[in-house]
Amino acid sequence: MHPFILERPTSLAAALAFRAQAGRNDAPAEYIAGGTDMIQLLQEDVRRPDRLVSLAGLLDRRIDVGPQGLRLGAAATMAEVAAHADVVRQYPLIAGALLDSASPQVRNQATMGGNLLQRTRCPYFRDVGYAACNKRNPGSGCSAIGGENRWNAVLGTSEACIAAHPSDLAVALVALDAVVIVRGASGERALPLDDLYRLPAEAPHIETVLQPGEVIAAITVPAGASGLRSHYVKVRDRASFEFAVVAAAVALRMDGARIGEARVALGGVGTKPWRVRQVETALAGSPLEPAVLRAAAARAAEGARGHGHNDFKIELMQRAIVRGIETAGEHA
């Protein structure tokens, strides 16, 4: 582990003032909240910050559910949000995605903001024994392309990177049109969570549009996402405590026996949480019939590209969408 100074500022302003390059992935300073991912990255020498700036106590952990929608303080833990009665009742997709994530111990420690900004599980990113990783060492190449890439993405990839985004929470939130409130030295700005993440393109080491010295302060979900019939489908190799092989977040507003409105996002398959609006369009007005659902889900494969070991994800993600719709539709 690279030696670092742990800064424990007493105000958010002070924390932001440490900005230096903090928030950017190639920075000499990094923020730490729950630390469930950061500690691993430090131990494995993947991240080598000179300063680790603690956000402990500087961001709120309130969970508010009201007529305006849902607001989650960035410091709320996964466990707190998953157990919140109003979240469970009105935004079960979020609670479900959280409970399908990690383990109880990790959920007690990990925060909302940290969850959204956790780094990829691409094993080549996490093993410094591989020299080539464009995310870790810009310009060094990609070991996953041509390597063992069952873990990697089939959507949003580039010649530089095929790393999958690991968060379940982010998939559910993107499906529900969540917005992140970003705090920086010059104040607050709001942006759709979907726009927070950048595609890898030529610069996979820059994963978000956060500017140096910006932090996620809160997440909001519009009230329109409340009360939808929803289901989070997570396919994985064991029953618990594992990142998704493929995941699908589905939320429906039924119009009689037909789907009035559908929200569908995918996890485990994209370089960012992957909203599939073309599937949603195809589903609008459709009955809950297998052949119809199957045809709509097939549109998720548009633009998908396998890299060998992960080719199966293109089929599996369509099945996960169908399962999600069927299950959500059953929940009258």
Partner: peptide, 25 residues
């Protein structure tokens, strides 16, 4: 334990990408 045929490294040399049964299994 995935052995990278290109160089003999084991990319999933951890307990996250090398799953063993948990209680739920």
């Amino acid at each position: 334990a995935v052995v990278d045929p290109r160089n003999g490294r084991i990319p999933n040399a951890n307990l996250a990408e090398y799953p063993v049964p948990v209680h739920a299994d």
